[in-house]
């Protein structure tokens, strides 16, 4: 889908919002600083016709990398037949990103998901609660320093050993 029109648009956007353009596998991505994403999204929506927020997610590069997180956005212009990838690097300590909820309504849940699974704070978000995990859950599961939570499977050779440790539920009153 990469074409000249899109490349030209990306150069314009990069110049205006102080960003850079990177290319991988035929996909161009606009890298923006974190304080530009809110005005940029407003402009994408109002001026450039990107009316659909296709995807919003986070990538964690591990605690030792700085900036640790990247927010990844994908905007789509249905009428203009264009798609736009945007990345926003976010530092690992107290990560905070402005919300896009007021421009794209569906950012609401997607941002809650990033908050829940990565612990990214979205300033100005109307309802920043956990969405997938229980409210009393501790930690953010998709961070790289969070363990997978693997349990040893029960096979014939270790059946008894695990059977002793494994908690089983009983009927009320026991049996």
């Amino acid at each position: 889908m990469m074409n000249e029109q899109e490349s030209k648009l990306l150069d314009i956007l990069a110049g205006r919002f102080n960003g850079q353009v990177t290319v991988f596998a035929g996909e161009e991505t606009l890298v923006l600083p974190v304080d530009e994403i809110a005005p940029a999204a407003q402009a994408f929506h109002d001026e450039f016709g990107f009316d659909l927020l296709s995807s919003l997610t986070t990538v964690d590069y591990g605690p030792e990398v700085d900036p640790r997180f990247h927010m990844v956005y994908r905007f789509t212009s249905i009428a203009g037949h264009l798609s736009l990838n945007v990345r926003v690097p976010v530092p690992g300590l107290s990560p905070e990103v402005p919300t896009l909820e007021n421009v794209y309504h569906n950012a609401n849940w997607n941002e809650r998901e990033s908050f829940d699974l990565f612990g990214i704070k979205f300033s100005g978000h109307s309802d920043l609660r956990r969405i997938l995990m229980p409210q009393d859950w501790e930690g953010h599961p998709l961070r790289k320093d969070y363990p997978l939570g693997y349990e040893e499977p029960q096979f014939t050779f270790n059946y008894d050993e695990i059977d002793v440790r494994k908690p089983y539920a009983y009927r009320r009153g026991g049996k």
Binding site: S54, S55, T57, V59, D60, V72, R74, H105, N106, N108, W109, N110
Partner: peptide, 27 residues
């Protein structure tokens, strides 16, 4: 949608699914 990021190794570094039901239910 599938957002897939590799890091040079044999396992996906990050994979995110943009699932239609998630956004549809939100409305």
């Amino acid at each position: 949608g599938v957002f897939l990021e590799g890091n040079g190794g044999p396992k996906p570094w990050r994979i995110h699914f943009r699932n239609p039901s998630f956004d549809n239910l939100q409305a």
